[in-house]
Design a protein around this nucleic acid. Structure first.
Lengths: 304, 304
DNA sequence: AGAGAATTTGAGAGCGCTCCCAAATAGAAA
DNA sequence: TTTCTATTTGGGAGCGCTCTCAAATTCTCT
């Protein structure tokens, strides 16, 4: 009899089912719009969403998207999810250490996963990230291997773990090679194009022979600044970025950068969240995804 | 008594409410991943989603995102929405004329709105778009005003209304100015970077003095190609793009382009959909948003 | 103060499903 | 064939709301 039902194409009413099972089969994705990233690195979120979407559709879940702007919207959102149980769990796609949602969620009992390492309560929170420090270290080590000695770094947002970790990686690479860490060669940025553009001036004055930019957007700013001042890349100054944006290979010279598996991050976050929904007791899951240095022209390595 | 309830912070269970009201207070956004656009023009969808999100949160609705890849996923999606009434309505963010979902939806009774002009059934479908033809015409007219006479065009995807309409606008501008339309100056592209890069070669051979690219991504490809062959922009060849991506003003020279109000498009689409949900009888709503030519350096106009 | 209208309150049905338990059926062992 | 067990089937109850209708209350006017 139930075989007949299946054949007739019967689709149960999700609302009725949700009412009794207390499972909506929907997960939420919260993206705070505050971070510059949303507007500058437009590659990141679509790709992340794609990864999440892949996993959720595979597991027959819906994905609700919440682009929250203000603190007020954070509150509204929180009530929607926690009080009303609109969704079974949430992925928080924000790296801001002070993300106010974290506190809301921590003892709410609603499963959630963060993308990027959270700034606090690390031992209680499930998250997926990449090993920013090692990745950055590898990139800078590569520059050192190629003979560069005065390597500057334009940092990302230092209020975000990713930004801080990449600075650490940069310093570790220098230390490992026995090179001094000169604070004058570290310019604070914020993952933006203009940070790269502006920061380059300072680094040029310091006579650097290479720049490690905290991300590709920044690297693009660096490239533009160097270009305008007729400094050759990689001949005069070598450059390495971070993220491997699709445009990285379209720049001239083509940008050497660290591949950031954003889609995999999304998939993994969704996968962890689904596990957490299934079995809320299964402690925090924390995953670090591997990265890879993509060697192109801008670092000065000979590419065939 | 109900004043007390409101004060106590009571939030009704959405599932129970949906069960009886037959309204989930959720709308869907379907983005077919097939079009190149998703991967190349990563600015478009986040911005569109932001516009939609603004309107939906304002009206207390949730936004479900569906990134569908295969025909199979289209089917699954369709059943989810139509048969099961997971959502009250849908925004279809695809410009592909042959979008299979359209047929599914047309006589399903589920409210839907398209972003971009649909390829068929135009009289029955609600949509929001921009006047691509006039916008393109204005851009090309601007080049003519600046003294350019051999203006090439690298088209967008001609399977999409936007692409076709922009060619029409290009032709109309030439016709209006009494200039001949030379098919050798029209190179078929597909909104991609490589279309611009490759197409430029053909147009250079034709000794054009200006290029109108179907979008900014393509214009970026043009710029790179011209750059590599040491052709000066705008001195030798002037360039105008379309979309006004955030990076347009970061290129050198800064790109003259048509401002595409993507966020407004999203807001409008959501607004129309909410109207349609409220009153399904209120015939198709069709809105054309205005655009504006943003004059920068690449077209050769003197900018102060 | 009393009759009428307007408003508030309360009780009950029902939305479409899942879950549980009892009844019926099918299958396995004696 | 009979008995016991395993599986299927069917009939409630109930999830948390909204909606309707009747009863109770308040307000308005004569």
């Amino acid at each position: 009899m139930l075989a007949v039902i299946a054949q007739e194409g019967f689709v149960p009413n999700p609302a009725a089912r949700a009412l009794v099972t207390r499972r909506t089969h929907a997960i939420g994705v919260v993206i705070p719009l505050a971070p510059l990233t949303f507007f500058e690195d437009t590659f990141y979120f679509p790709t992340l969403l794609q990864g999440i979407s892949r996993m959720t559709t595979e597991h027959d879940h819906a994905m609700m998207l919440w682009l929250v702007q203000s603190e007020e919207e954070h509150q509204t959102f929180y009530r929607r999810i926690v009080t009303s149980r609109l969704m079974d769990g949430v992925i928080i796609a924000s790296a801001a250490s002070d993300e106010p949602l974290i506190d809301y969620f921590l003892n709410s009992g609603v499963p959630f996963v963060m993308v990027e390492r959270p700034g606090s309560h690390i031992d209680q929170i499930s998250f997926v990230s990449i090993d920013n420090e090692t990745s950055a270290c590898n990139a800078v080590s590569h520059l050192i291997t190629l003979g560069r000695r005065r390597i500057g770094h334009i940092t990302g947002n230092l209020g975000i773990a990713d930004g801080v970790d990449r600075v650490r990686g940069y310093e570790r690479a220098l230390a490992t090679a026995g090179l001094p860490v000169d604070q004058a060669l570290i310019v604070e940025g914020n993952f933006s194009h203009s940070a790269g553009y502006l920061g380059t001036r300072q680094l040029v004055e310091q006579h650097v022979d290479a720049i490690f930019a905290a991300n590709d957007i920044t690297a693009r700013g660096v490239l533009q600044a160097l270009h305008e001042t007729h400094i050759r890349v990689p001949d005069d100054i070598a450059l390495i970025g971070f993220d491997d944006l699709p445009t990285a290979s379209q720049l001239s010279p083509r940008l050497t950068t660290v591949c950031h598996p954003v889609q995999e991050k999304g998939q993994m976050a969704a996968s962890i969240l689904l596990d957490l929904i299934e079995d809320p007791g299964s402690g925090p899951h924390q995953v670090m995804l591997p990265t890879q240095l993509i060697v192109r022209e801008s670092c000065g390595a000979v590419v065939l």
